[in-house]
């Protein structure tokens, strides 16, 4: 028994790292969020005033809304496109591994590279997309993708979906590989069409993979920072100003450490709430089928 307890000493270094980099900072963030700390000097206690400000100024309410809209867009479309590719590649063993690796490649690359390449692709005059559209005679569709406040959020979301479709597809392909092959063979013998097999056999059996993929995409997207930061800096006109950009702006642009901390706590609560609800809803859905 003593040997067992002394074995826990092995976890001490890891617990120290976790304490210094997660537990204490989360406490400190909350503590700072109740002050007007400016990075240096004395911090004055301001009570809940930072939070009051967040929920009464439309600018910050909008940041939360934009973050949520962006997340819903990315999570839904990325999972649909990933499921589409996984279902198709599951039926085509000859090109499966090659295609999986090719689709996965963008997810391997840096946001910096992807962000800059797409910034150029989207540029209105000689960016690749508008040039291609004009060459195809679709002049009227050659828009100012990142400069139009009505389009920018969708344009940024599109890049993120494109970048991570292959990653999510790989998760679904692993799910497909675990399906019992007898069931599929029986369905083929019974004359079930490809769509019928997808809809009535594969989708119900893939529920656990869907739960994992949707939750991973959601948590990753709620904290999204790099693509909107590189592509639009939160612009035009605040159209892509997600919560993380607001945090960095307050922190390093204006040195409002206290206020940035309050925004961080809002993000933490948002992530935990969404994860909790999603976990419950998706797990319940797994049980029903």
């Amino acid at each position: 028994m003593r040997a067992k307890n002394s074995l826990y000493l092995f976890t001490v270094p890891a617990l120290i790292v976790l304490a210094v980099f997660f537990v204490y900072p989360i406490y400190l963030t909350f503590d700072m969020s109740l002050t007007n700390f400016k990075g240096i000097g004395e911090a004055k206690d301001v009570g809940w005033r930072n939070y009051e400000r967040i929920f009464t100024r439309s600018r910050y309410v909008d940041a939360v809304k934009i973050t949520l809209i962006y997340t819903v867009l990315v999570v839904v479309l990325q999972n649909i496109s990933a499921l589409f590719f996984a279902a198709i590649l599951h039926r085509m063993p000859l090109i499966r591994n090659f295609s999986r690796a090719a689709l996965y490649t963008p997810a391997m690359m840096s946001f910096v590279v992807i962000g800059y390449v797409w910034q150029f692709l989207y540029s209105p005059i000689n960016g690749g997309i508008n040039v291609a559209l004009r060459d195809l005679g679709l002049e009227s569709f050659a828009l100012n993708w990142l400069g139009d406040p009505n389009l920018a959020l969708f344009a940024v979301a599109f890049v993120q979906i494109w970048m991570f479709t292959g990653f999510t597809a790989a998760i679904y392909l692993a799910g497909f590989a675990g399906l019992p092959s007898e069931l599929e063979e029986a369905a083929i013998l019974e004359g079930a069409s490809s769509w019928q097999r997808f809809r009535y056999i594969e989708i119900p059996l893939l529920r656990p993979s869907i739960t994992v993929a949707v939750m991973l995409t959601t948590i990753g997207t709620l904290r999204t920072f790099e693509l909107p930061f590189i592509l639009t800096r939160g612009g035009p006109d605040g159209a892509t100003r997600v919560l993380s950009i607001e945090i960095i702006d307050n922190l390093f642009g204006q040195y409002k450490f206290g206020f940035a901390s309050a925004l961080s706590i809002v993000m933490l609560v948002l992530v935990l709430t969404v994860a909790f609800i999603q976990n419950k809803v998706l797990r319940d859905a797994e049980k029903v089928t």
Binding site: L15, F22, I26, A260, S261, M267
Partner: peptide, 28 residues
Amino acid sequence: RTSRIIVMIMALGLATPNFVTITPIYVI
């Protein structure tokens, strides 16, 4: 229970977005 609590702390580390801890880490 000790193991389960430690695993929970690790899960907290896995789930926390780095924007939640970036301000204090910068200050520290």
